[in-house]
């Protein structure tokens, strides 16, 4: 019967991806937001390239990730309540944990696309080179996106059901994301500076630990967030 959970996961994820492909705007909105954040940060820090420019670029990338992640999770979860679809999903025999996994996967895919775009934009805006160092950003950024999606999907389940809840999501998600943010910025800066792999790997471990913890917590606790009513 493991297949039922797997099938419901695939069904919900497929629905979300189809909606997106047939004219949903999540990925476009996330990408545009990331672009804007990077532009704002370029104005704010006026980076000169070189060593300090790389550190600023790593920071900017993660600010963009946090903003796009908040938007992505909100859209994946609260998009359902706009037309009452969430009620149908909860009434169906669908497992809540499978619903969480599907929503997490959708939010992660949207974020991953936006992050890939913002890595390219970052290289352009901060005058870096497309080389091996930029490739090494990918694991850190993808782990960060997964962690943020896991956290924000759970919290978006809360914020979408409260009046004025859009305020609650950043207030809760940002402090909780701090460990992954520290690790991600450090890993990205190490990657861009061409630091030895050991320094990079320490931070990846923190990111992996964060992801495991929050995916597990979200999987177990989503049931209580997406309760009745």
């Amino acid at each position: 019967m493991a297949s039922f959970a797997a099938r419901s996961f695939v069904a919900v994820l497929r629905k979300d991806l189809l909606l997106e492909v047939r004219g949903g705007q999540s990925t476009v909105a996330l990408g545009a937001l990331s672009l804007l954040v990077l532009v704002v940060l370029v104005f704010a820090f006026n980076p000169a390239g070189g060593e300090r420019g790389a550190a600023a670029a790593a920071g900017a990338l993660w600010v963009a990730l946090v903003f796009s992640g908040m938007l992505g999770a909100t859209r994946a979860v609260s998009g359902e309540s706009e037309n009452g679809c969430i009620r149908a999903l909860l009434m169906s025999p669908l497992d809540r944990a499978a619903l969480y996994a599907a929503k997490l996967a959708a939010a992660f895919i949207f974020m991953a696309v936006a992050e890939a775009a913002s890595i390219i934009l970052m290289v352009l805006f901060f005058n870096l080179e497309f080389d091996l160092r930029v490739m090494r950003l990918a694991p850190a950024v993808m782990l960060g996106a997964l962690g943020f999606a896991a956290l924000a999907t759970l919290l978006a389940g809360i914020s979408s059901r409260l009046r004025g809840g859009d305020l609650v999501l950043p207030l809760l998600a940002v402090p909780m994301f701090v460990p992954a943010l520290i690790a991600g910025v450090k890993a990205s800066a190490a990657a861009l500076a061409g630091a030895p792999l050991g320094e990079f790997a320490v931070w990846l471990k923190v990111l992996v630990a964060f992801d495991v913890l929050f995916v597990a917590a979200g999987y177990l606790l989503f049931e209580y967030v997406a309760g009745e009513e």
């Binding site: 701090v178 460990p179 992954a180 520290i182 690790a183 450090k186 320490v202 931070w203 923190v206 630990a209 964060f210 913890l213």
Partner: peptide
């Protein structure tokens, strides 16, 4: 995990 990451930082 906050404690660990901040300490490493």
């Amino acid at each position: 995990i906050v404690i660990v990451s901040v300490r490493l930082w």
